[in-house]
C-alpha cells in the first residue's frame, strides 16, 4: 500500500532535542491553576500542593477517597502516597497453579539471594581487615573500616 506524501515539515531525530513547540492555543490550566506545571498535560507540582493548605487538604481527601480509607492519617512521605493497600485484590489471567509455582520460585530466589548477600557481606568484612601486601602498614594501625550497614528484610 502506498503512503500519502511525506509531511510538509520533515522531522529528524534532532527535532526531539529541540525545545517543545510553544502551544499555539492558550491553555486553561495556567489561567485557572497557577500551581500546576504549564507545559502540556503534566503533573501537579507536589511542592506547590504541599505549600498550599487548601490544595493539600483537597489532595488528602482525594487520596483517602481513592484508597477507600476515609479515616487514614495523611500521608507523610511520597512512599506513603503510593503504598498499595494490603487488602487490594488483583484479578489476573494466571491460574492458581501458576501463581503458586511463581510464589515458590520467588520465595526460593529470596532465600538464595539472602544467602548470597550474607556471604557477600562476610567477604566485605574480610576486605575491611585486609592488610595489602604492597603497602606498609601505617603507624599507628587505623581502626578497621566497617562496611556500610545495609537494610535487609527477612525473606
Amino acid at each position: 500500500m502506498s503512503e500519502p506524501a511525506a509531511p510538509k515539515k520533515k522531522r529528524s531525530a534532532k527535532t526531539v532535542e529541540a525545545p517543545p513547540a510553544k502551544p499555539r492555543r492558550a491553555l486553561l490550566a495556567p489561567e485557572l491553576n497557577p500551581a500546576r506545571a504549564v507545559e502540556g498535560v503534566a503533573r501537579m507540582s507536589l511542592k506547590d500542593v504541599v505549600a498550599d493548605p487548601a490544595l493539600r487538604k483537597m489532595g488528602v481527601e482525594l487520596w483517602r477517597q481513592m484508597r477507600g480509607t476515609p479515616e487514614a492519617p495523611p500521608p507523610t512521605s511520597v512512599e506513603d502516597l503510593w503504598k498499595q493497600l494490603p487488602s487490594a485484590r488483583l484479578n489476573s489471567s494466571s491460574t492458581a497453579d501458576e501463581i503458586d509455582r511463581y510464589r515458590e520460585r520467588l520465595s526460593f530466589r529470596a532465600t538464595m539471594l539472602e544467602a548470597l548477600l550474607e556471604e557477600t557481606l562476610h567477604e566485605l568484612d574480610l576486605l575491611a581487615r585486609a592488610v595489602p601486601a604492597d603497602v606498609p602498614e601505617p603507624e599507628p594501625a587505623p581502626e578497621p573500616e566497617k562496611p556500610k550497614s545495609r537494610k535487609r528484610k527477612a525473606a
Binding site: E104, R105, F108, T111, M112, E114, A115, L116, E118, E119, H122
Partner: peptide, 16 residues
C-alpha cells in the same frame, strides 16, 4: 558451602 548451608540441602532438593 556457607551459602548452601544457609539455604539448606532440603530446600535445594525441593526447589532446585
Amino acid at each position: 558451602r556457607r551459602a548452601i548451608d544457609k539455604i539448606g540441602l532440603e530446600t535445594m532438593f525441593h526447589h532446585q
